[in-house]
Design a protein around this nucleic acid. Structure first.
Lengths: 130, 130
DNA sequence: TTGATACCCGACCAGAATACTATGGTATCA
DNA sequence: TGATACCATAGTATTCTGGTCGGGTATCAA
C-alpha cells in the first residue's frame, strides 16, 4: 500500500503555502521549486482550489494562497482532495460486501482501521508541520 | 489510497484456512469457493507460502494449511506478504528524501502514521477474526 | 507402473491508473 | 497592448492490476 505522488505533492505544496501564509499570492513557478513538475503541479493546485483549500489570483503578480488559516487545514483535508476518500476495501466503500456481512469480522477490521487512519490524519494540521 | 485485491483476497484465504486449522490440507479448489479466480488465487497462495505463513502438501488429497497457530498470525503479516511493506512515501521507504530532511515535519508525520497503521494491523490476529 | 490429483512456476496480456506533457485558452495589470 | 500567470482539456509513455495460459513436478491409489 503506497500513497500516490498526488498526495505527497499536494501536501508539499500546501506546506509551502502555509509557510507563506501572510506573504500574498505565491506563483506556480515559485511553488514548483519544491521539486514538482510545473504543469503537473498546476493540475494538482486546480484540485486543491476546487476543494476550497486554496484561493487563486489571476494575472500579473497572481498566484495561490491558502483559503483558511493553517491551523484549520488538516492533512486529511489535503489527502481527501488529492486522492479521494480513504477506501481500503470496496466492501466498506460501496456497501457491496460478500454474502456473510454483517457478521463479518474482516469487515469490522477494515472499518476500525479506516477510522483510526482518518482520525490520525485529521489530528495533524498544516500549522503543526511548520 | 486503496488496498489492492491481493491484500483482500489473501486475507480472505487466510481467514478460510484459519477456520479449517485442524481439518488437514484444504485444496485450492475449496479455498477458491470464497470467490476468487482459481488460477489467480494460486499465485497469491504461492506468495503466502514463500512468506512462511502457510504450508502446502502436494499430490492427491494435498492442499494448503496455515503454518502457525491462528493466534500467531497477524493481519500485518498477511498484508506485508501480499503487498510488500507499507511505504506511504518514498521519502520514508528508501531514504531518498528531499534536501530538507532531517528537520522535515512532513516526514515526521509520515513516520508517525506508518507506525500507527502497522501497530494497528499487528494487533489483530487471524484468531481474533474467527 | 500408471494415471489422476493437486501444487509449482514463469510467461503473457488487456485494461486501468499514474505521472506527466502539450496546447490553447482567459484574466489582470503595468 | 502585451507580458504575466492562472485555467482547462487532451494526449501519452510507463507502470500496476488483475487476471489467464501452458507446461511442469510431487504424491498416492489402483
Amino acid at each position: 500500500m503506497r500513497l500516490s505522488t498526488r498526495g505527497k505533492y499536494g501536501l508539499y505544496a500546501m506546506h509551502y503555502l502555509a509557510q507563506h501564509e501572510n506573504d500574498g499570492p505565491q506563483s506556480l513557478s515559485h511553488i514548483a521549486d519544491i521539486g514538482v513538475p510545473k504543469q503537473y503541479l498546476e493540475q494538482l493546485l486546480g484540485g486543491l482550489r476546487r476543494s476550497g483549500l486554496i484561493r487563486s489570483v489571476r494575472g500579473v503578480n497572481g498566484g495561490y494562497q491558502i483559503a483558511k488559516p493553517s491551523s484549520e487545514i488538516t492533512v486529511l483535508d489535503i489527502l481527501d482532495a488529492m486522492e479521494g476518500p480513504l477506501e481500503l476495501s470496496d466492501c466498506i466503500a460501496n456497501g457491496r460486501c460478500c454474502s456473510k456481512a454483517p457478521q463479518c469480522r474482516v469487515r469490522d477490521m477494515w472499518e476500525k482501521l479506516t477510522d483510526t487512519i482518518n482520525h490520525e490524519l485529521n489530528s495533524v494540521t498544516l500549522k503543526d508541520m511548520l
